[in-house]
Design a protein around this nucleic acid. Sequence first.
DNA 1: AAAAACTTGCAACTTTGTTGCAATAACCAT
DNA 2: ATGGTTATTGCAACAAAGTTGCAAGTTTTT
Lengths: 140, 140
Amino acid sequence: MQEDIMEKLDKHDLRKTIIRKDVLKIFVQAEGKALSSKDIEQALENPDRITLYRTLRSFEEKGLIHQAVDGSGTSKYALCSEDCTVHEHQDDHAHFHCTKCEQTICLETGPRSPVNVPEGYIVRRSYLVLEGLCRRCANP
Amino acid sequence: MQEDIMEKLDKHDLRKTIIRKDVLKIFVQAEGKALSSKDIEQALENPDRITLYRTLRSFEEKGLIHQAVDGSGTSKYALCSEDCTVHEHQDDHAHFHCTKCEQTICLETGPRSPVNVPEGYIVRRSYLVLEGLCRRCANP
DNA sequence: AAAAACTTGCAACTTTGTTGCAATAACCAT
DNA sequence: ATGGTTATTGCAACAAAGTTGCAAGTTTTT
């Protein structure tokens, strides 16, 4: 698993620094859960906030993680599937956002039916967010 | 039109103060375009920033405007359709977000096919965001 | 017209995120 | 392994977006 992390960093052309290993480990352990900068700050104790932001940006640029739009206002990130590359993210799945515990998870969703946009508009990506209560919060 | 605005405020149980009339007028004129707090600040000259935030919150609570999730990070709002009530928003349409000019518009979209969520999860609302270039930015 | 209820505007503060720069660590080639 | 190159870190300073408490000012109700 330690090797897994090293390999991932290597494959995505990222230097193996302590914080990167730590952050990536947290993402791997989170298993499809989207994490905010704050979540990670709390998991690691006292990482430099700025360095963390930059780590997240690098990870995203190199195709290791993707932003999970969830309507909560703050950015969240989740581990990409294996086939994301530096140049193009392939994370077309929807995200579920629990309004009670504020957790966001990636859903396994197939391709969506296309939506009509006005003449002349170009669609590059789309995000689908489902909002409601997760299992834990729905059944207290 | 002035009467229209007064009526809307009345119907939604909001006091008719100067800033509320002004802000609502801007939303009516924006015609389906989603506006950020900043957009409105610029349209009105020097409104109190805090009061504006509170105005937007009241409008949303009373079902006059709805948040338009667009993945841009900052909150945007657009006028609700007539049948939104205080208790339940009905704005199920998608939003288009132009990554160049940062404008967001409401799209007229029909009902979407439901997405599978894990056992026990409850979906209350969903947001669909299309991201790309608007007509103006796509054809320079 | 006065009382009650709500709204405004100000100060102060929090959270989230960015930039510039010197010091440091990782990587590559001897 | 050693050193040079290049990328990364950590700090300070800053900026944007948003919130809270409270006294003063408006609406609305009676």
